[in-house]
Amino acid sequence: MTQPTFTSVLTVAVPVTDQDRTKELFETLGSKTIFDRELQPGFRWLTLELPGGTATLSLILAGPELPTGIDTGVRLSTPDARAAHATLTGLGLQVGDLLDWESAPLMFVFRDPDGNRFYVTEPYDSE
């Protein structure tokens, strides 16, 4: 048997106009900066580790080929969607309705200061 080509998702890059502003937001939400360096003039790579997660978020400077206001496709997990919804609303972010369906865990969407869409959900019930 051959070794697997890929073993996990390491990071997801999200374009932002102000890396420090978005870094501060995610640190307020419990993330920790694990990498912050200018790799070449004008190109800073900033990576945040989410508490308890294995994948990270990398905040990269937006540009013509990397616009903001995107649907990131990123699904963030939380043990308490109601509390997370209240926290993000309290921070003044654009937060969607808390979806409370019988057949799925609590979930909602929010947009960061650049309008990038993130999804938040409680863990799935495996039963």
Rank of each mutant, 00 (worst) to 15 (best):
A84P: 04
H85I: 09
W45V: 04
P4S: 13
T33I: 10
S31W: 01
G52M: 09
D112T: 07
L48R: 00
T22P: 02
Y124E: 09
L99G: 00
V74S: 03
R75V: 02
I60M: 14
T68V: 15
G96D: 14
Y119M: 11
G115F: 15
F26V: 07
T2K: 12
R117W: 04
T47C: 09
T87S: 03
P113H: 06
Y119T: 06
L57T: 10
D71K: 14
S31E: 02
E27A: 03
R21C: 03
L46Q: 02
R44T: 12
E24L: 13
A55H: 12
P41C: 13
T28Y: 03
R75A: 06
L39V: 15
T68R: 11
A13C: 07
P41L: 13
P4C: 12
T68S: 07
V16Q: 07
D100F: 07
Q40I: 11
E27G: 01
H85T: 02
L106N: 03
T72C: 05
A104Q: 14
D36Q: 07
Y124A: 10
F110M: 06
T89Y: 05
A13V: 01
P105Q: 10
L29S: 00
D112S: 03
Q3I: 10
G52S: 11
R44M: 11
M1G: 14
L25K: 14
S8E: 15
T33P: 06
V9H: 07
R117G: 02
R21E: 04
D125A: 05
A13K: 06
H85Y: 06
W45C: 08
E127A: 13
L106Q: 12
L48S: 00
D80F: 00
D97T: 10
T56V: 01
G73I: 00
F118N: 08
P105R: 06
R37T: 07
G42K: 10
P123N: 07
D71A: 13
T89D: 11
D18Y: 14
E27S: 11
K32F: 06
F26T: 08
W101K: 13
L46H: 08
A84Q: 04
F35W: 02
W45Y: 15
L10K: 09
D125L: 07
I70Y: 03
L39F: 14
L50Y: 03
D97K: 14
L91H: 14
V120F: 05
R111C: 13
V12I: 10
A81M: 03
E49V: 00
G42I: 09
L66C: 04
T68F: 11
K32C: 08
I34N: 06
T5D: 10
Q40L: 12
P79C: 01
P67S: 10
T11W: 09
F6R: 13
A104C: 11
F43W: 15
G73T: 02
T54E: 14
W101E: 12
F110I: 02
T7M: 06
P123L: 01
T54I: 13
G96H: 12
L76S: 01
F110P: 03
L91M: 09
P113W: 00
P51Q: 08
V95L: 11
P51D: 10
M107K: 08
S8P: 04
